[in-house]
């Protein structure tokens, strides 16, 4: 009953924010313009609709990846970034910007190729690993390596414009993303989400530790493959079209765990809805910034995420020290 109320509430929130995302921007387009033949309809159909769609998918896939990653690693501080996929995808995108002509499709393809390469490297490094700690370590290796190569590429960029383009891209944004971005990324994100949604029961069982989970008939190698492929597809495709957007995967499961209950499987769908709502809301805030420009989505997420964790910290401190 309570779970149904939570899901309905979150779904209503996502729909409302989606509608708001279509209306709000540097120019406010009222609802009535949608069906009255108003020329401003073009703003909605060509600019805001794909952007809102991308925000919804990106948020849902990041929130879901975060919930799955926390359940799998049995650590509430895990997030999709720990596998190093986002860093690898960012490396691919920056390589395309610095070395290639940086067409939209070129950036996407390079980022996805690097994300896949990163996942293959991760799978190789953790071959037959027994503990999740091995994945965190391998992910850290991958992330550091990718970050170093990304900086190297930026340092050898032929001119300052390319440097600016690469750094601009790394900050993560939904600005000016079009229908092509949505159609490139959506199949990968949806496939990734489908894989991640299949992990619920296994994650529940893993609450009791790996031995007990296996004794309940859960295949840990299958779970591992689902998590890595699913999170890799979601994060890789997300970074490939929007740049690096952090905190969603970390914050959303935290926010919703008290409402959904601590069972990891019960957190998956709420985390997807909550992630979509959070990214839609953050993207609206980005557009409302005064002046001609927009705040970067990655920056806005960090600005939302940091105070949230400060509050958590203060509450924890009150509990254990007070």
């Amino acid at each position: 009953m309570r779970r149904k109320a939570l899901l309905v509430g979150l779904a209503v929130l996502v729909v409302a924010l989606f509608a708001a995302s279509l209306m709000v921007g540097k120019a406010v387009v009222p609802l009535s313009a949608w069906w009255s033949g108003d020329p401003r309809w073009a703003i909605i159909a060509e600019l805001r609709l794909p952007r809102a769609g991308l925000a919804t998918l990106l948020g849902a896939s990041l929130g879901l990846s975060g919930a799955v990653m926390q359940g799998w690693l049995r650590n509430p501080l895990a997030d999709p970034g720990v596998l190093g996929t986002s860093s690898a995808a960012a490396l691919g995108a920056v390589a395309a910007i610095v070395l290639g002509g940086a067409t939209q499709w070129g950036i996407f393809a390079a980022a996805m190729a690097c994300a896949a390469g990163g996942l293959a490297l991760l799978a190789g490094l953790t071959w037959r690993a027994e503990t999740p700690a091995a994945f965190v370590l391998a992910g850290t290796v991958l992330a550091s390596l990718a970050a170093a190569l990304t900086m190297f590429l930026i340092s050898i960029a032929p001119n300052p414009y390319v440097v600016a383009a690469a750094i601009d891209w790394l900050m993560g944004a939904l600005t000016d993303r079009g229908v092509e971005d949505l159609t490139h990324a959506a199949p990968f994100m949806l496939a990734g989400c489908a894989l991640l949604l299949a992990t619920g029961r296994s994650l529940d069982a893993l609450t009791l530790g790996p031995d007990a989970a296996r004794s309940l008939g859960i295949s840990l190698p299958r779970l591992q493959a689902l998590v890595i492929a699913g999170a890799g597809l979601c994060v890789g495709a997300g970074v490939a079209v929007t740049g690096v957007v952090g905190f969603v995967g970390l914050v959303v499961p935290h926010m919703l765990r008290p409402l959904s209950g601590a069972r990891p499987g019960a957190l998956l769908v709420p985390a997807a809805l909550g992630g979509a709502a959070l990214v839609l809301a953050a993207d609206i805030v980005c557009r409302l910034a005064p002046g001609a420009g927009e705040v970067r989505l990655g920056v806005a997420m960090a600005l939302i995420g940091a105070p949230y964790f400060l509050v958590l910290l203060l509450r924890e401190r009150g509990r254990s020290w007070g």
Binding site: T207, L208, D211, L216, G217
Partner: peptide, 28 residues
């Protein structure tokens, strides 16, 4: 898994779920 129930020595419960949810895991 239906035939053999195994209770490990390390009685870790990683998430603070309710007793009912925890016991329900036995039905997996």
């Amino acid at each position: 898994a239906q035939a053999i129930g195994y209770l490990p020595q390390d009685a870790a419960v990683h998430w603070n779920m309710t007793v009912r949810d925890l016991v329900r895991l036995g039905r997996l």
